[in-house]
Design a binder for these strands. Structure first.
Length: 216
DNA sequence: TGCCAGGCCGGGT
DNA sequence: ACCCGGCATGGC
């Protein structure tokens, strides 16, 4: 079951990359927009997040200041298409408050923080768990941390590369200890996993005919 | 028409 | 340390 090693991990990447090419993640114009998207996409289809972000930009650029000023109820109404809009409005407000209290509302200043410390602090914000924190670090700050998500488990488990019962941290460690610490690589790798999962690794479909990882 | 989507929290064992 | 219900919209 667990035949994970450096060679396999790189082989998976090579296959996906040569099949799909670069994915150009994260979809978002600014690091702040990436962070907003990371929170809004929790257990939610990206197409819904796009509508929400579009609503947020309706009358002005999407900046920390704009969200800081916006009434939470108004914010909730705007992000309604992304689902869980009440909890997500609070999560966005909590993050922005954190940003202003600690880094003067400046995203660049936040990413000047030691990544290890920053991850810990992000995790203490309500509504930011391991995946969201790591997405913020990697796709917002270009910091080399590997993002693990439901697709990662499903793809690797279905191809017999990883045991089902494995924690987020363990799974992340597996990737990071066996791959060069390269933000560009981690960026593409995660995006490619999402891509192949959407096409060949849907829930309740054990067979993946034509999957680029077939027979690995 | 139900199931699913790039999670996370809080309360209960 | 896990387990589970709750949170909610839009697409297929």
């Amino acid at each position: 079951m667990d035949k994970m090693n450096r060679e396999t991990l790189m082989e998976v990447f090579e296959r996906l990359y040569s099949h799909y090419g670069p994915q150009g993640w994260w979809p978002g114009e600014t690091p702040f927009e990436v962070i907003v998207g990371a929170i809004l996409t929790q257990n939610t289809a990206w197409s819904n997040v796009e509508k929400a972000i579009s609503n947020l930009k309706k009358d002005g650029p999407l900046t920390p200041e704009a969200l800081f000023r916006m009434d939470e109820t108004e914010l909730a109404m705007r992000i309604r298409p992304s689902g869980y809009y009440n909890v997500k409005a609070r999560r966005l407000k909590d993050f922005v408050r954190f940003l202003f209290e600690n880094y003067g509302g400046k995203i660049e200043e936040m990413f000047n923080e030691d990544p290890r410390i920053l991850r810990e602090r992000l995790l203490r914000i309500r509504g930011i768990g391991p995946e969201t924190a790591d997405s913020i670090l990697l796709y917002g700050g270009n910091i080399p941390v590997f993002v693990v998500d439901a697709y990662t488990y499903r793809v690797f488990n279905r191809h017999g590369l990883l045991p089902e019962e494995i924690s987020y941290e363990e799974c992340q460690k597996m990737f990071m200890e066996n791959l060069p610490k390269d933000a560009g690589l981690f960026n593409e790798y995660h995006a490619l996993i999402v891509r192949v999962a959407k096409e060949f690794c849907k829930k309740g479909r054990p067979l993946c005919r034509g999957c680029p990882l077939e027979g690995i």
